[in-house]
Write a protein that binds this DNA or RNA. Structure first.
Lengths: 309, 309
DNA sequence: CTTTGGTAATAGTCTTACGCTATCGGCCAT
DNA sequence: ATGGCCGATAGCGTAAGACTATTACCAAAG
């Protein structure tokens, strides 16, 4: 007479469904791989905990009660989902939902290619791409907002493990009527005395450009801090200064024509390192390495990028 | 390294969902009413049996792994259905699906009223009405095809328990141009020498009419055995003989007008007893009594029927 | 009317599962 | 450095759940 109905066990539900389809305790027990008394006991326990009779064990064959049938039907439903749950666990490394954080200066220009490729090679992977300012990205990764991030290296925290994927050169963008616009490439020395625009300090680009200006006696204009690469390009086009644009953005959005000219660096060295990072404790190393390989493969097909890791 | 993944337990799933929403072992354990080590152990067991890591317990807060999130979501799904299953058991006696077997000479003429009434008084009851020849009805009840039957009494098997609901008179149907058609009532003696039609021996009506013929020197025509009451009425209308029709059929299908006339018996005694039967082992006495009451209440509103039980 | 062969229920025993308390080791903030 | 908070571990006791062997019951057969 225990009024508190405790949960049935999954085992009991399996036994019940077996009984419902065999209509015999003995056969059902055999199907379940247990002895008949064990099944009897479990069914009795189930009936007791539910407070209803599920099967009529009269003479001859077993007959389920009306509630017994409904409970058995629901049990099948439950078991199907349990099986699905177990199935979730026995899948490959790159399956299911993965939340990828990415910096806004990379996301719109690289992720479409990555998503397309992964959709083809890993149809069971559902990639949720979330953009976040680089300054927040690593923290959000640690907090569990993202499973993995595509960000600029290095990632500082000891909790985070990362691989370098590729190097993205920074290209110099000038107005098309600017004297430098005739050159194909630029030297660091060309920067001397120029007004340079860049993004807000929330972006890594800011720091990188700042140092570049200091080293080459250029002026970083702090009064115009763009909030997007598109905004930067517009300002450069209107003659407010020059700027540095990541190669992926240029390849995607600046197609030669237009009001700005883009110059490659004469010597290598001006670039940012892009890598994949994840919590060391995630234990998903394998999957993230595979994800990184996919990104690298995509990058190899895009112009300007350097794959030397 | 046990390759055989045994089922998770419902308890483990409850713990996992608690952990997923608290993101803390201690708080989750508290919510579940157990100690933190117990929850840790169960989660570990779940991870082992599934073969995947579900939660990252690093520093600070707990973060679910990607599979952990999916498993937790599926677990919520499972638990919802388990709760529904438990809920099935805690309902009143006349709820859910009940399979009612009924003889064809009664079903179409009585059940519409019964169903309508029950739908109003017991909205959670879903009555599945199945017609079957009377000779099969009791056997099918014992075999578990029906939960309860509405049949002619008596029901023979000791396994079956029954209550009498009402008595249905048999009325004499003759062609409207038959000499008897002018009378309102008939005596048994009126049958002498008449040709009498009836249903096949699979129906109780057959036996009853047979005895009536023998007692009153009427001729049972064995060459025309109708397969439905409608067919009988047609044959009577065409002058092939007279027949006996159950009062409910008459009330439903023979509305005074037409090619047949219907005579009531002058004295009571010619009737069939209709009752409700169920397996004694079903343990659902209470529900079936209630069902019987509903049928009785319906019968009380119909003409010709005698409720003396 | 008894016997036989099927059924499920019961009795007794053992192993495993699952809970508890107490304690340990790591990380962050004071 | 050092509390304070976290989860993991250790050790232990109870209860769940399996087994075998047996009993009780019913139906059909002798």
């Amino acid at each position: 007479m225990n009024g508190m109905p405790s949960d049935p066990t999954i085992r009991q539900l399996r036994y019940l469904t077996a009984l419902a389809s065999c209509l015999s305790f003995r056969k059902a027990a055999e199907r379940c791989g247990i002895s008949q008394p064990s099944l009897s006991a479990q069914l009795k326990a189930l009936e007791t905990s539910l407070g209803v009779r599920l099967a009529e064990r009269g003479s001859g064959s077993v007959v389920l009660t009306p509630v017994g049938r409904e409970v058995a039907a629901t049990a099948i439903d439950v078991l199907d989902r349990v099986d699905a749950l177990v199935g979730l666990a026995s899948r490959g490394p790159l399956t299911g939902v993965l939340r990828l954080g990415v910096k806004p200066t990379l996301g719109p220009y690289l992720m479409p290619h990555v998503v397309r490729r992964l959709h083809a090679t890993h149809p069971d992977l559902r990639l949720f791409v979330r953009e976040a300012p680089p300054i927040d990205l690593e923290r959000e990764l640690i907090e569990g907002v993202h499973d993995v991030v595509l960000a600029q290296l290095p990632l500082a925290s000891a909790e985070v493990e990362s691989v370098r994927l590729f190097r993205e050169p920074l290209l110099l963008a000038v107005a098309s009527d600017h004297p430098l616009a005739r050159q194909e490439r630029f030297d660091p020395g060309d920067l001397k005395g120029l007004d340079v625009l860049t993004l807000s300090p929330r972006y890594h680009l800011h720091e990188q450009v700042l140092r570049l200006c200091e080293e080459n006696e250029a002026t970083l204009r702090r009064d115009y801090e763009g909030t997007s690469l598109d905004a930067l390009r517009q300002m450069v086009g209107m003659g407010l200064g020059v700027t540095f644009l990541p190669a992926l953005y240029v390849a995607s959005e600046v197609r030669g024509e237009g009001d700005v000219a883009v110059l490659k660096p004469a010597r290598a060295g001006l670039h940012r390192s892009i890598g994949l990072g994840w919590r060391r404790a995630s234990g998903n190393h394998e999957a993230y390495e595979a994800l990184g390989d996919a990104v690298t493969a995509v990058a190899a097909e895009l112009p300007h990028l350097s794959l030397e890791r």
